[in-house]
Design a binder for these strands. Structure first.
Lengths: 289, 289
DNA sequence: CACCCCCGATAAGCGCCGCTGATGGTGCCC
DNA sequence: GGGCACCATCAGCGGCGCTTATCGGGGGTG
């Protein structure tokens, strides 16, 4: 189970070709063939069907393991490398789109910042693999509960703010005049599914334990403005943190009263923040409400 | 970052000796020395101080990664192996002590079962590495919330029951006559810390967001009977699922009313349950309350 | 229907990596 | 101060894994 073999195997399945994988990895086709054979012999079972090249059942299981494994390996490398290399003075921040609250933006140093906006699921990976010094992720959680993140590597999380959430709906919606809304009452409504930009629907489902929240339109961008416009135009409801609500024609934003859920933002880092990253983290703490 | 080198490095740090690690791993001392040197060169930094042999800062970081990495690797192996080998008909069940509710015990097949009671933290590992076909873990959670488990490997969880929890206190305790108790009111009391048997104190802390719950006595066994006796004798309070409460001299069990937490039991498995494991899982589902 | 091309498996050869055994240097304990 | 236990280093060698070369087969095309 050499990581080398694992990487080759993953590449072969991804490209569905021994030869293409060989070209991609800088090997000969023969080497790739031998590597896959070695892996299969090691595990005692075929992992791929040839012609066409596709994973067997065992191969599919292995793929599920291989990704996180290689990721963790890379994370370990990056972690040590970060400890060795001197901090370069700059600060790279990976953030989910809705995690960029005003409080965060205010705490940013004036220069030397690189901001990478990523889908929320990619943020921990970016921090773990050294693609960013710090990460900001957000999500719905019970008050004071930490967020649930995939543990690609031993990352430290620190709360970076909580705020109420609102439901976005067209102003003409029958419920738009309400002072507060219960999420359970909206399970049968049509929702915007915005895994990149906002809070994906399965977050709502786990938060309420419901199986509802059928998607109306799936939005794959990361832009909140567009999401807001979609909600105003009646393409579906959305849940966003209150501070992300902007006055928009035809839009109503009603606070969510039940379940008691807050929009929570967390700061992520590997090891201890250093240099500009430490400064930023400290400044973020100072503005704690 | 060969897993081989990683394993050697971990062994060296654990034994704090190159020579001892070499003996343990079946290498010569020379080989171990070269392996560690290779790892250090690969990562570009010293990982160990010699004389005495102890990890450097970078080495400590690496250790944090190496454990889960090697575990995952082993889990992947075991996962594939389980897929290859025919199910042996038997069923090995790894369970946390308090996860063995009556409902679980009733669903067990009459023969061919091996029951391994482990500390809760070890259950996912046992399932992932093939030490058990199924796992049962329990813990406190908000109603309908899944438990938080370390994801050593892609494991599937399935709810296997929820029930209210009670606080165990001596019958002479001033609060023993109450009909219900709020956990927050008990943060300053002295608690039994039973990481093996019951619900460790940090579970209570995360559940309430409190930093209280100072331990009075630390109990390292896995026996609930002893824990109950300790509570009755006034050595500290404990929280247990209601069904685990037995009539005991001098013991009072008061339902916990706030926060709204339940004792939740979950079934864990890698891939899809097969053979006797599938039967058991289905029977557990049938008795769903 | 036959040819050809592309793909993957296999064989042979070789270079390099990593192991062993031996030796050197160093701190610690007696 | 001597001996010992420990780790580093060196030389040598065996085997692993790569490349090159070749074979077998399947599908597309003329």
């Amino acid at each position: 189970m050499d990581p080398h073999l694992l990487r080759t195997y993953v590449t072969v399945t991804r490209l569905a070709s021994f030869s293409a994988a060989a070209r991609a990895l800088g090997y000969t086709q023969s080497a790739v063939s031998q590597q896959v054979a070695a892996l299969e012999q090691d595990l005692g079972t075929p992992l791929l069907t040839r012609r066409p090249v596709a994973p067997t059942r065992a191969g599919e299981r292995l793929l599920e393991h291989a990704g996180p494994l290689l990721l963790r390996l890379q994370a370990a490398r990056a972690d040590i490398a970060a400890l060795v290399g001197a901090p370069d003075g700059g600060l790279t921040l990976a953030a989910a789109p809705t995690a960029l609250t005003h409080r965060v933006l205010r705490a940013l140093p004036p220069t030397g910042v690189t901001l990478r906006v990523l889908p929320r699921a990619d943020v921990p990976e970016a921090v773990a693999t050294g693609g960013a010094d710090l990460g900001l992720v957000d999500g719905l959680a019970a008050p004071n509960d930490p967020l649930r993140l995939a543990d690609v590597a031993p990352l430290t999380t620190r709360g970076a703010g909580q705020e109420p959430v609102c439901v976005l709906l067209p102003a003409a919606h029958p419920l738009a005049r309400r002072a507060g809304l219960r999420l359970a009452d909206l399970a049968d409504a049509r929702w915007l599914d915005a895994p990149g930009a906002g809070l994906p629907l399965d977050h709502l489902r786990t938060a309420t334990g419901s199986t509802g929240f059928r998607p109306a339109l799936r939005y794959e961008g990361t832009d909140l403005q567009a999401l807001t416009a979609l909600a105003a135009a009646g393409h579906g409801l959305a849940v966003v943190p209150r501070s992300a609500v902007r006055d928009t024609d035809g839009l109503a934003a009603v606070p969510l009263t039940a379940p008691r859920v807050v929009h929570r933002t967390e700061l992520l880092y590997a090891g201890a923040p250093r240099g500009a990253a430490a400064d930023f983290a400290a400044r973020l703490d100072l503005t704690r409400s």
